[in-house]
Design a protein around this nucleic acid. Structure first.
Lengths: 214, 214, 214, 214
DNA sequence: GATGAATGAGACTTCATTCAT
DNA sequence: AATGAATGAAGTCTCATTCAT
């Protein structure tokens, strides 16, 4: 069956990747044997190695794919000149994507990629690149702060880290418990966004209970 | 009457666990062989099996230990009647703990435990138990909302999830990049806490740039 | 009527054999994969199997080719009625051939063929046939002994084996170290030939140092 | 079965090496699978790797062993002050050793080691070291030439190469055909030695047949 | 005739665990 | 209690060969 089209190759590659994701989501990278991937993909051992150099490389390909998808979201949402809307869209975009049931299985793999990044330099750099979109958010924060649309005084970099945490943490919690209440999470996220948009600091405006006596 | 004292057994167990954490932090659970743990711990293969039934069980023991430590923090901080202070103390407590360099190596293991929870029911239930302290936070939020110390209208459960995310996300980011700016992160965290303490919703109070025309 | 000419087939066959020799000389039979031969020859996997039934058969074809070349030498040299000259020509012929740089790479393959002969009956019989030219030398020795041109009393068969050894040993040593001094080797060879031509035994004619006292 | 004696370890190692030699002699290095060695040695797969790092290393160990044995011969024989006797002893020593039926199987492995030396740097250096004993012979020749016990005018290095060839060639021929006539070979060897001991060159002393007319 | 993607048996090696000492 | 040599199932990957195109 020589000289196949690129589309054919791509579909075969997809087939292997999908089978791998299926297995990885079920059993984890390390508990998944090539034999399982082979069975799931319905191809022979040799064929897999025609498309990937090693099991490790399959993991990397999946990691890359994951993060490629993510970075699109930020770019489009943050283009909105309405600062509040931009941030809400970003949050909504992520949460909608994350709650897509089709994606949930894949997200289990993402969590494993995160752990794998601690061990594999290659995966680490993929994760680092993926997470680098955080810089877009930091830039956005900085810019909108200068325009007076966002409360000043907060380190844009730190804000972006906090926002990243809100996504990462959601992914983790959802991976552990798929029944997580997305809408509630979204509400709190939006509330945080709105409140961080305030120009004035608000500290001390409400009674926080009995103040410590020291 | 035991042939060895409990203290002896305990110290040997620690020795094995510490060696395992060292190896796991370096190479990950699955890439760490018993032989490596054996070398690191300076005990024999047979001895390890006198203290643990399997490699899996070592992982579980470490997972358990991790989460046992964490749950103390929440309980003490949240006892403070000053709501704002309680939450700040909670955030500070976590961040201080997390930035303890001694703990940083161990946290790499924590991230792997999170991934492992997707595969092992046993680890999953340990993680679930550990994360169950979130309930304490939710309860705290609910109670203080009723007392009027916290803005109403937000689902306490969702708020607690958000707060948990802020911790999980920090741990991840720090595991990937130990040089993360803790103080900046802390400031933003505290700012969020303060602003969430506001009794009044703040939506629309500031100019968010050119509003969308729809 | 063949679809392609014999010349075409032959050139393609050569191309494959040359590529194989190249690879075999570099990596050995067993470490050379068909993929390497395919790459070196610039043909497809399928094509190779149009010309050879198996990798094994390529080895055999090369072994055959090697020994076919060798057997010509002996025949021509030994036709010379001048016994001494015939033997010198034989030695020179071999050594000249063996020191031809183009042939040196191929000789590395010869050494492997020798080893392979221990395993493959087919290769063994090829080597045996190739080495059978030794019989020509034995016959030559016997004949010239009877004519009084060569010292009597030596088993012609054994002499031929010794002469074969001198060639085999040279090939081996040269395969291990291409910088071997050919001319020195040739001198000694010729000296041996000359001295074996002596009609008289020479034992005891020179002082061999202090004789053992037993 | 912990803490075994060195003797135990050594015997186990021998067991594995002997099984390997058996298999290698039968099938060659590359056609012998670890499974075959395992079966022949009667140990488990894991055990083999307790004694050797790889299949390759077994080959190297065998190569080393082969050549270690050989180098003893030369040293003892050449110590004899009677030059003629020394060389005869050397030749006899080798041939006796080589015709020992127990050793014949092992010699089939030696031939493969020679071929392997073309591919593996490690094996190559072992062969080179083993063959380096040739230097002892060259030194011996040089020294005895100076003492007038050996005909001068021949390069000692070349003579030693010729002598090495006589051994290598015998090994090869015997590996191909175990029925080789050792005594005949020995006679010719000794005759060559005797004749090379002559102080006077002998060229031209006998009639070599009809001289070429040029 | 030529191609080269596909095959799948089988290769080497690892490693968690056991158990005789 | 402690040891560590031994185990052997299972893992990843290779590669000679085939066959639809």
């Amino acid at each position: 069956m020589p000289r196949v089209t690129d589309a054919y190759r791509e579909s075969k590659r997809r087939q292997i990747l999908d089978a791998s994701i299926e297995c990885f989501a079920r059993e984890g990278f390390h508990r998944t044997s090539m034999a399982q991937i082979i069975a799931e993909a319905g191809v022979s051992a040799g064929t897999i190695y025609l498309y990937f150099d090693s099991k490790e490389q399959i993991v990397e390909a999946i990691a890359e794919e994951r993060h490629a998808l993510e970075s699109v979201l930020a770019a489009t949402a943050l283009a909105n000149p309405d600062t509040r809307q931009a941030l809400h869209d970003l949050a909504d975009g992520y949460l909608n994507w994350l709650s897509d049931p089709i994606e949930q299985k894949r997200r289990r793999v993402t969590v494993q990629v995160w752990a794998e990044a601690l061990r594999s330099d290659r995966v680490a750099s993929i994760v680092r690149d993926g997470v680098a979109q955080r810089q877009q958010i930091a830039d956005f924060i900085r810019e909108r702060q200068q325009q007076g649309h966002l409360v000043a005084g907060l380190d844009p970099d730190a804000v972006s880290r906090v926002m990243l945490s809100l996504v990462l943490g959601f992914v983790l919690q959802q991976a552990w418990d798929a029944a997580i209440d997305v809408d509630g999470y979204r509400s709190v996220l939006n509330e945080i966004i709105d409140r961080l948009l305030l120009a004035e600091p608000t500290r001390g405006r409400v009674d926080h209970g009995r103040p410590p006596k020291r």
